[in-house]
């Protein structure tokens, strides 16, 4: 319990740092946002009026305090380019990106754990070289390229889905999941190779530990030794690794959304960057940081549960 509190406190501090960083980096941008919103043709009076309306003429600390309190309330301000609040603009897109990321993780875990176990079992056969080589190559394929290959194979040749025709979860939840499957797979692919290789290595390392000999000395069958003793220990580093990859998976989803035309946070982030829509960019960064830090917290707690040796 103490552990959970300490971890949560660290998480809150990290998030605070992130928000400070985000706010001040965007305040330091040269140029007046009011000008970029009105265009360079605007009259100075109009600019001054909008500057005042946006509250940009007040001291920066005041603006930070106000902004921070609003963020805590879930209010990220108004979008510059879309005439609506950032919160309402992003609420759908968050769900899509989260669905995509979670799906990628689920696919990764569902494939890599059995695969890693299988690879460990075959580690002294000829198959080992085959698996290691394939893994090595897959690890080197960036998700946007594997996304294109998947589009080519499953979309163009096999016609299992229509590239670019995203199905909203509002129209059909399962249709949406179905469309997100290939994007999620292309994010998961390199992670599957990494996790299964890691699991294979840890299973082999754990199998040589002395407690395994003890387990055999009690008359356990090989299977029981594996599932009761080795696997739990071998999964501990895998859980840590999966936690660390969550950030990568979110980054991956930003890129892969572009490949498969998925209207999530990644797409709107890119359009906001080219449109200099700062409130939207700020909000997306904070949200993504929140997801990453949150997932790290969950992994830490899981890890704590799995490995009783970890103490504060």
């Amino acid at each position: 319990m103490k552990y959970a509190i300490k971890k949560t406190a660290t998480m809150i501090i990290t998030l605070f740092f992130v928000s400070v960083l985000v706010f001040f980096s965007f305040s330091l941008i040269p140029g007046n946002p009011a000008v970029s919103r009105l265009g360079t043709e605007a009259t100075p009076e109009k600019v001054a009026a909008l500057t005042h309306e946006m509250g940009l003429d007040r001291p920066v600390m005041v603006r930070f305090g106000e902004w921070f309190i609003n963020v805590l309330r879930g209010d990220f301000g108004q979008s510059y380019s879309y005439r609506q609040s950032v919160t309402s603009l992003l609420s759908d897109k968050i769900k899509i990106t989260l669905m995509l990321s979670v799906m990628a993780i689920v696919i990764c875990a569902a494939i890599s754990v059995p695969l890693g176990i299988f690879m460990a079992r075959k580690s002294d056969s000829k198959l080992d070289i085959f698996f290691s080589s394939v893994n090595q190559v897959i690890m080197a394929i960036p998700s946007f390229f594997s996304g294109i290959i998947l589009t080519l194979i499953f979309g163009v040749i096999l016609k299992l889905f229509t590239p670019g025709a995203f199905v909203s979860y509002k129209t059909s939840f399962w249709g949406c999941l179905g469309y997100l499957f290939f994007p999620a797979l292309s994010i998961a692919l390199p992670k599957i190779s990494m996790v299964s290789k890691l699991l294979k290595d840890t299973v082999i390392a754990e199998s040589q530990k002395e407690y395994v000999r003890t387990a055999y000395s009690r008359g356990n069958r090989t299977k029981a030794v594996f599932y009761r003793h080795v696997l739990g220990n071998a999964l501990i580093p895998v859980i840590t690794f999966m936690g660390m990859t969550f950030a990568d998976i979110i980054a991956g989803s930003i890129i892969v959304e572009q490949v498969f035309s998925v209207p999530g946070l990644g797409r709107i982030l890119l359009t906001s960057i080219s449109g200099r829509d700062y409130p939207v960019i700020e909000a997306i960064i904070l949200l993504l940081a929140f997801f990453v830090v949150m997932s790290n917290l969950i992994v830490d707690l899981l890890y704590h549960k799995f490995d009783p040796r970890i103490h504060v």
């Binding site: 002395e210 407690y211 003890t214 387990a215 055999y216 000395s217 739990g232 799995f306 009783p308 040796r309």
Partner: peptide, 30 residues
């Protein structure tokens, strides 16, 4: 026979016990 008629204890009790299973569960495993 193993663990039932013939039992064994080892040099390093820490390494010989599974670190993530409660001691009691390991004692009763046989």
């Amino acid at each position: 026979l193993q663990g039932y008629e013939i039992s064994m204890i080892f040099q390093e009790p820490l390494n010989s016990l599974n670190p993530i299973i409660k001691v009691g569960k390991q004692v009763e495993e046989s």
